[in-house]
Amino acid sequence: MKVGVQINERELELEVATNSTLIDLLREDLGLRGTVEGCGVGVCGSCTVLVDGRPVSSCLVLAADVDGRVVTTIEGLGRNGALDPVQEAFLEHQAFQCGYCTAGMIMAVKGLLAENPRPSAAEAKDYLSGNICRCGTYEEVLGAVATAAASSDGGGD
């Protein structure tokens, strides 16, 4: 079926199968492989992307349901070759190890800062707790959130 969607600021008209999920659309149809799947049931958060600015598990969203929506993936962050402040903060705090959760974690942080540009540590924990990092790089993620929030533009654009 036909889907008109804006993905990373590009307007796209796509033909998708009804039984295809948003992550299938991103990875298989569009080659946006920065978004990865970990559990397929909405628990781990590796596949987090923003739909209309809010984080969702792209493994549970039907591709057909992004018709008319705005989708942002990790590939859509940063401008003119410069990294997004959240990405910079992740680098600064070494807030990743194997990296498999990282794209999803960064997108969740984008969602957090968009809603709450100056989150307390408790608020950040509450919001991000659903993004699992088995390497255990949690303190560094919280550090990155604090840095990104403090950076001049708040990182929450």
């Binding site: 946006l32 978004t35 993936t73 990405q87």
Partner: peptide
């Protein structure tokens, strides 16, 4: 060394 790849999603895993 792998930081820029991992924070941008450019990193390639076997699943890719």
């Amino acid at each position: 060394a792998d930081g820029p790849l991992k924070v941008t999603g450019q990193v390639q895993y076997t699943v890719d």
